[in-house]
């Protein structure tokens, strides 16, 4: 039996006349941290969103734990989503709720846990990302960008997910805060024993959090291998990307 947590087979998606995913084939092993790299608009976010079911693919199959989840709906989908946590690019914190209510949202609203039970879990998760209980009653708008990212990370891990997605976790942060977030991602993933899929174009982040790397270009995975082989991939697209060269096969 294969030990894959997520399998994407021939996934296609277009918006209008624009083919965003042409043919995505990607396997993620259980417990590994995969980073998908690629330029802006190449389909990285759409890939993640199709796995979560936020976007329905036009063709292809998505398997999670060997189960076909391509067309899940209703309660099955809510149940399925409990396996996941996601850190959104802009944080996507609910601005009408306090910090701790944000972190506990999946517990109190998604699983109907009482506030009394959920509060200590929220505080524990906030502490896991290096934040103090004193900010629990604040609103997201009162925090800096880096702190919002951390709160968002705490929310993503609040339900002890088996799979965590990170959508450009370090974008918009200063290099030090970016490194703090990278460390936290590493720590949270290993403590939970979770499978992680991140998308980023920040190479420092890739080297810090990846076990394996996949590169997406024009809606297809063109290279997939362990992080150790990234510098000797033998793929000129990957070489151009990781070295940040304007000249090469990738055209912008």
């Amino acid at each position: 039996m294969k030990n894959f947590k997520i399998e994407m087979q021939g996934v296609k998606k277009s918006f209008g006349s624009k083919d965003v995913l042409r043919n995505v084939n990607l396997d993620v092993k259980k417990g590994e941290s995969l980073v998908i790299i690629g330029g802006s608009g190449t389909g990285k976010s759409v890939t993640i969103k199709t796995i979560l079911g936020l976007i329905k693919p036009d063709a292809g199959k998505i398997l999670v734990d060997g189960q076909d989840v391509t067309n899940l709906g209703g309660n099955d989908r809510d149940e399925y989503l409990k396996k996941f946590g996601m850190l959104f690019q802009g944080g996507a914190l609910f601005d009408s709720m306090t910090i701790w209510e944000n972190v506990a949202f999946g517990l109190t609203q998604g699983q109907k846990m009482s506030k009394k039970e959920a509060y200590p879990i929220a505080i524990e998760k906030l502490e896991a990302v290096g934040l103090k209980e004193s900010i629990a009653q604040h609103y997201p708008a009162e925090l800096s960008g880096g702190m919002q990212k951390r709160v968002s990370l705490a929310r993503a891990i609040a339900r002890n997910p088996e799979i965590i997605f990170f959508d450009e976790p370090t974008t918009g942060l200063d290099p030090i805060m970016a490194d703090v977030i990278n460390d936290l991602i590493r720590k949270c993933v290993s403590e939970l024993g979770a499978t992680a899929v991140s998308i980023t174009h920040d190479m420092a982040s890739v080297r810090k959090i990846a076990d394996s790397v996949a590169m997406i270009y024009e809606g297809e995975i063109i290279w997939h291998g362990p992080i150790e082989k990234l510098d000797n991939s033998g793929n000129e697209y990957v070489d151009q990307f990781i070295n940040g060269r304007a000249e090469g096969p990738v055209k912008f």
Binding site: L81, F84, M86, G90, A92, F94, F105, G106, Q111, R155
Partner: peptide, 21 residues
């Protein structure tokens, strides 16, 4: 605004149906 800042997607991933909520 919630749609644009991905709060609606976030809600869905936390197993809360935005239509009901």
């Amino acid at each position: 605004t919630m749609r644009v800042t991905e709060q609606i997607d976030a809600m869905t991933t936390l197993s809360v149906n935005p239509f009901q909520y």
